[in-house]
Design a protein around this nucleic acid. Structure first.
Length: 292
DNA sequence: TGTCTAATTAATATTACTTCA
DNA sequence: CTTGAAGTAATATTAATTAGA
């Protein structure tokens, strides 16, 4: 969560919002929720089929099924020749995999070798989700800073540069946009929350002022001793507090006296209002509006 | 037909906690 | 009692998939 200053709400720096640091840098882990203590601390001697380690261990070989090997035949690799480092079909039951079919092992080896994947990585446990290297991620980030969408030409070039499939580059950009949007939504949410708090507070104060004024109206004996009204007026031209009109002000020759049509109607000035007007950066709504 | 968003899945990493020598 | 290693579970991150516009 991004902390916004409590007092005023500064404009949200677009450079951050739309060109945030890499996700891994951004995602400083929020304070984790208090750990949920297991209701029972008994450890079982046999592996728990639900445990992640058990799943991870057995995922690829369990029941004699090599999940790296997919049943069907043809390969649907979009761009032959450009292959991913160790990306594989991510889901056994993935419809795309079923639909498209992969000559699993053979193709996997081919892919791996084309990227110089070591035998170690390409062994039985090679059904690994691709993790982009730091360099790859950095290049993608850089590219995203320049343009958060890619045309086919850019996509191909980037894929070639990174040694990835164009589809992977495309997916990365999609996910990156989604992440950016999520971050922006969080920031907007915070902003609106602050606005709401400010307005609530202002409302409370105004209500109190009304109450005070009503009380004064009912108690004219105190009228003369009252403190100056807090709802003053301000000259919009010079942004100075204007004295309430009196008989003497008509002959007042002070330099603040304005004459003529340029002197507009004074606007109320709320002494409790935040010193700086609330400004904000564009929200996703604005962004969407721009897009459409 | 291709690309987008949104929602979702699943692999992997990280973290917190427990147990035990 | 303290400490460090090892194991586990919960959670976070993110690549990939899917559906629909």
């Amino acid at each position: 969560m991004i902390e916004l200053p409590h007092t005023t709400t500064p404009p949200i720096p677009l450079s951050f919002l739309y060109n945030p640091p890499p996700p891994h840098a951004l995602s400083s882990k929020p304070d984790p929720p208090p750990p949920v203590k297991p209701s029972c601390n008994v450890t079982f001697p046999s592996p728990d089929p639900n445990s992640s380690s058990y799943r991870a261990e057995t995922r690829s070989t369990l029941r004699g099924i090599d999940v790296n090997r997919l049943p069907s035949t043809a390969d649907c690799e979009e761009e032959a020749g450009v292959s991913s480092p160790n990306s594989t079909i991510s889901s056994i039951s993935g419809k795309r995999s079923e639909r498209d079919g992969i000559n699993g092992e053979e193709h996997e080896m081919e892919r791996a070798s084309s990227r110089g994947i070591s035998d170690e990585e390409d062994g039985e446990t090679s059904r690994k989700k691709l993790r982009l290297s730091k360099d790859q991620a950095a290049i993608l980030e850089e590219s995203f800073k320049e343009h958060n969408t890619l045309n086919p030409k850019q996509k191909m070039a980037l894929a070639k540069q990174l040694g990835l499939r164009p589809r992977q580059v495309e997916v990365w950009f999609q996910n990156r946009r989604a992440r950016t949007k999520l971050k922006q939504t969080e920031v907007d949410c915070e902003f609106l929350k602050r606005c709401c708090e400010n307005l609530t507070e202002e409302n409370r104060r105004l209500q109190k002022e009304v109450q005070d004024l009503r009380a004064l109206k009912l108690s004219p004996q105190f009228y003369m001793h009252m403190t100056p009204p807090t709802t003053l007026t301000m000259c919009p031209s010079c942004e100075r507090v204007a004295a309430p009109p009196t008989a003497s002000s008509a002959v007042d020759a002070s330099p603040h006296t304005h004459i003529g049509p340029s002197h507009h109607r004074p606007i109320p000035m709320n002494p409790w209002a935040p010193a700086a007007p609330i400004t904000r950066g564009p929200t996703p709504f604005d962004v969407n509006r721009r897009r459409s």
